[in-house]
Amino acid sequence: MNASHVHTENAYRSLSETTELDDPRWAFGTGIVEEEGAELSSPVPSGVDATDLAAYCLMLGDDALVLQHRLSEWVANAPELEEEVALANIALDLLGQARVLLGRAGHLLGSDEDDLAYLRTENEFRNVRLVEPSDELDFAHCIARLLLFSTWRLALLQRLQQSADPVLAAVAAKGVKEVAYHRDYAVRWTLRLGDGTAHSHERMQAGLVAVWPYYDELFRSTEIECRVGVDPAGLRAEVDDVLDQVLAAATLERPTIPGAFTVGGRAGREGLHTEKLGLVLAELQSIARQHPGATW
């Protein structure tokens, strides 16, 4: 029997039709843990505390989950269709990284990716605060944040490829390839806007100023990061160097404004967030909370 006849005539038919062979689908995820036991259920490496590892997966997973939501807000709102598609693709990569990381955390915590994404409250999220503000449909703001985030995450993932945890190592190896494209996209736009017209230069500089208060936090070390992951303090020299090169080539000035306040030294990694995170979660979680366990 030739199996290739299945749905070759219409790639979209298989997306909409169901047969007796299909399981009902949970409306918000696709059950990554059950089917993909291969890596997500790998044993915890010796010497590593499972609770620490889960907390670290949540940190990197939440960074990606919250930023992909903000990037997705550009769909149907970007200045050009190409940029809309680009931002949606970047968001999709980050969503994929978030799903694996939350899936790993879910396995370690006896939960799953959907419960972790849709049923945690603000103070249970562990993302850095850089990913929280809305771009307010300001494209230069979007590019400025993506420049900082992708430069930092690329440096982080490059080091994380050496992780003793097979899931972190796999996410990092795949993520490096993806985030390299994200950084390249942000760098190109930074150059184009910064070294463009007087107006585009001013807007790009303002975008940098808007996101810069959250830059320092990217390099704050927490004990968990140092124990089971990459110490972010060690990324600073490399990230500073890349940004200095980009900003110089784009004729932009590195802002000198101080970092956003912390509370007793605590910030996003300890669950202390800006009020903007609540707005993200309200939208992200509303359907899952209104229709618990919905399938289609």
Partner: peptide, 23 residues
């Protein structure tokens, strides 16, 4: 699609796993 094709070809038990590494 893999599950459908294998079931249609007569296989009774089909498991499809996804691995990320090597990328």
């Amino acid at each position: 699609d893999i599950r459908r094709a294998l079931t249609a070809a007569g296989y009774e038990e089909v498991q499809v796993r996804t691995v990320f590494s090597p990328a």
